[in-house]
Simulated assay, not measured.
Amino acid sequence: MMCYTTTVSGTVQGVGFRQATRRQARWLGLVGHALNLADGRVEVRMCGRRDALAELESWLWQGPPAAQVTDVSPVVGDSEPAPDDFTTG
């Protein structure tokens, strides 16, 4: 299982982005989290199969209908243990 973190920029807070990301991630069988950052971005940590990770990263560029994504930046792969579920915060 691979894990890595991305940050998503644009109009991504207050538009249901984290909840939509959680639904999409769970549908793809991924675990991790989607968290609001103080600077207006959303951090998405995702863990799972490589193909599912690529599919979620592609989806992040669109997000839910009210979102306006301007950038999806991979931050870093990590070796932390994968969580049991996909959560928001």
Rank of each mutant, 00 (worst) to 15 (best):
G16T: 07
L56P: 01
S73A: 12
V15G: 01
D39G: 00
V76T: 08
T5W: 07
V42E: 03
N36Y: 03
A82I: 10
G63M: 11
L37M: 12
V72R: 06
E80G: 06
T87G: 08
A66W: 13
A52F: 06
N36P: 07
A20L: 09
V44E: 06
L56S: 01
A67Y: 08
V8W: 02
V42W: 02
S58G: 10
V75W: 06
T21E: 00
E55T: 13
V76L: 00
Q24F: 02
G63I: 08
R50H: 15
G63L: 12
W27G: 04
S73Y: 09
D51P: 11
A38M: 06
Q68D: 11
V75S: 02
V15F: 12
W27H: 07
V76P: 00
R41Q: 12
T88S: 01
C3I: 15
V8D: 01
Q19T: 13
L53F: 09
R50V: 14
R50D: 15
Y4N: 04
G32T: 04
D71M: 15
A67S: 11
V15R: 05
M1C: 05
G77T: 14
R22M: 13
D71I: 10
R50C: 14
D39Q: 01
V42Y: 00
L37Q: 09
L37K: 04
V15H: 02
R23W: 05
V75M: 13
L56A: 03
L35Y: 03
V42Q: 02
L28P: 01
L56G: 03
A54S: 14
T5S: 07
C3G: 15
P74L: 12
L56R: 00
